Amino acid sequence: MVTRDLLARHRRGRKTPFGLTARSVDVLRDGPDRIWRAGGRGQPSDPARRGGRQA
């Protein structure tokens, strides 16, 4: 999930806690709108927002 820019590593010695990135916050905020707008079925993500990868 780090490579997909959804989690950020915060290295502190031997421990590495993870936190949300700005992109993951956007995804979480956008989620309810996408779910309810689609009648319970989410639409495929925009490839541009996923780093240009095709579904």
Rank of each mutant, 00 (worst) to 15 (best):
R12C: 08
L6T: 03
G39M: 02
G39K: 02
R37I: 00
L20I: 00
I35N: 04
D46C: 04
T21R: 02
R23V: 00
Q43A: 15
T3W: 10
R50H: 05
R9M: 09
K15Q: 14
D46H: 06
T21Y: 04
G51I: 01
P44I: 02
T3Y: 14
G40E: 03
H10G: 03
R29G: 08
R29E: 15
P47I: 00
T21A: 11
R11S: 12
R49L: 03
T3K: 12
A8E: 14
S24P: 01
G31W: 10
L20W: 09
R34P: 04
D26S: 15
D33T: 00
R23S: 11
K15C: 10
P47C: 02
L28C: 13
G42Q: 07
A55I: 00
S24A: 15
R37C: 11
L28G: 08
V27Q: 14
H10C: 08
G40C: 07
P32W: 08
T3C: 01
R49W: 02
G31E: 10
T16W: 05
A38K: 05
I35A: 11
R53M: 03
D30M: 11
R11V: 13
R37Q: 14
D30N: 15
R14F: 12
S45Q: 09
D46K: 04
R37N: 14
D5T: 09
V27F: 12
R37P: 00
A22S: 05
R23I: 00
A8H: 11
A48Y: 00
R23F: 12
G19Y: 06
